[in-house]
């Protein structure tokens, strides 16, 4: 019996050493480097929907037999970020995804430690000089629409309010849509009495929906009304 015991002990010791040794080889550290940036036009950030992984860029890395892109989601103010391993990546947009002219331009990114990169795009339209005015119960938003590439027409301009910071087409408690909007100054107003009364917080945002494109161009900020 003594003989057996010794063997069991040796076997146990051996497998324990094997386990400990094996662990060291299998695991990587988690990625440490943070890539951040903005989707820009002429240096200005482009506002997008920002939730539900709707607008994204993709990071690809060459040199492996099989490839899987890393999707990088763009938030309301046009910014994005990703935790990555150091290395060379290609940053691309997928055609028809964002509210900008589809192009397969690749931005090569060298990630070494925390890195910042901007991704330039050509949006179909931009909105600027946005102001919100809450006068008693009427909310008025005014802004300027500039056409950059008018190959797709404006479907409508919209002013939306929601009780969370996510104010979007499809995610709002009250909105108005104005069709037939052309480039230039736009004013939209609606009665928000009920919304102010019923919600504990209220945020507003404007957007331009473009024909043939799922995503709209949004204000990069949301305006808190309450």
């Amino acid at each position: 019996m003594h003989f057996m015991k010794q063997h069991i002990f040796k076997a146990a010791l051996f497998s324990f050493i094997l386990c400990v040794a094996a662990c060291g080889k299998d695991n990587y550290d988690a990625p440490q480097s943070r890539l951040t940036g903005k989707v820009t036009y002429n240096g200005q950030a482009v506002g997008v929907k920002g939730s539900n992984q709707s607008v994204y860029l993709q990071l690809w890395q060459d040199g492996y037999a099989t490839r899987t892109p890393i999707n990088v989601y763009v938030t309301q103010d046009g910014s994005f970020s990703a935790e990555l391993f150091d290395g060379t990546y290609k940053l691309v947009s997928t055609s028809g995804n964002g509210p900008w002219v589809s192009k397969q331009d690749t931005v090569i990114v060298q990630v070494k430690g925390n890195t910042t990169v901007d991704y330039p795009v050509t949006p179909y339209y931009t909105v600027s000089n946005i102001s919100y005015d809450l006068n008693d119960k009427t909310l008025t938003a005014s802004f300027d629409v500039t056409g950059i590439d008018e190959s797709h027409a404006i479907e409508y301009a919209t002013l939306m309010v929601n009780d969370t910071k996510f104010v979007e087409i499809g995610q709002n408690i009250h909105s108005i849509e104005k069709a037939g909007v052309s480039v230039g100054h736009v004013e939209l107003s609606m009665d928000v009495t009920d919304d102010l009364a019923e919600s504990r917080a209220l945020f507003a945002r404007v957007a331009i929906k473009i024909e043939g494109i799922t995503e709209g161009v949004y204000d990069t900020q949301v305006e808190q009304l309450k």
Binding site: N172, S175, E177
Partner: peptide
């Protein structure tokens, strides 16, 4: 489909 289910809550 994109006209009928246009994602607008109104």
């Amino acid at each position: 489909a994109h006209e009928i289910w246009n994602g607008s809550s109104s």
